[in-house]
Design a protein around this nucleic acid. Structure first.
Lengths: 131, 131
DNA sequence: GTTGCTGCAAAAAGTTTGCAGGACG
DNA sequence: CGTCCTGCAAACTTTTTGCAGCAAC
């Protein structure tokens, strides 16, 4: 980790992002990191997010209709699943191999994003009980 | 089309969206529709967008790092391609059949979004000339 | 002791809303 | 001629920036 200065605020923000299994919004990061660094301001959160993004230490996860979230750089190519019941975002492990093949001929595909929507494991079970 | 009142402004905005092969941002819609309805304001554009969205007459196309765009409801399931050279967004015709299968077991998948990034046909050719 | 980082507040950028007047049916 | 729609401006929301003081090294 190549921060110029290793301040209390930066440690707190990084710790929160690294500890979270899910991508977090800036206000969520602020709320969680404030427990460790009480006078933390939202501007510092945004500033560090930008710095970490530029160094590829975190990734932006943007889901249509949702505010941007940020997650630790996890190893390997992966996508996300939004549970429309509980609002949680899950990382998916794999990706289809031929996904870039749907581009028209002569288009050069560099990368892609894929987001699945539905109900997670946990919510499916809860719904069955409530039915 | 079930608008309560068929005003000049609404006709202009709808015409622009329906005529465009690409999804448009609200300022783009305003600029284009203003030619037909000069005193048109951005608030009216946003209000009609919300109305048309709620009636499923248009679709929001949101690409990470880009402002939301809107397109006419095109028939059938499709995805988009962002050309990172010219900034244009293209509709893709097809989609892989087994794309929902990458969700973990017991997750219920309702739908998905897929966005490809790269260089379009046109830009690929132009780049070759410039090389 | 420098210099970069922080918090605060103000500024930007994008979207929504209140309201008085005007256009549609 | 009533009511929905519009334009304008103000309010909101989210993100960025300027600046004085503080903390890291």
């Amino acid at each position: 980790v190549t921060l110029e200065r290793n301040t209390q605020q930066r440690q707190a923000i990084l710790a929160v992002i690294n500890a979270s299994p899910q991508p977090l919004t800036p206000p969520q990061i602020l709320a969680l990191a404030s427990r460790q660094s009480p006078r933390l301001g939202i501007a510092t959160v945004y500033r560090l997010i930008r710095l970490l993004l530029s160094q590829n230490l975190i990734t932006m996860v943007e889901i249509p209709g949702q505010p941007p979230r940020y997650e630790r750089q996890s190893p390997g190519h992966h996508h996300h699943f939004l549970c429309e019941n509980c609002g949680n975002v899950f990382e998916l492990g794999t990706c289809l191999p031929n996904i870039n093949s749907i581009a028209p001929p002569r288009f050069k595909v560099a990368r892609h994003d894929l987001i699945l929507y539905g109900e997670c494991d946990n919510c499916v079970r809860t719904d069955q009980l409530t039915d």
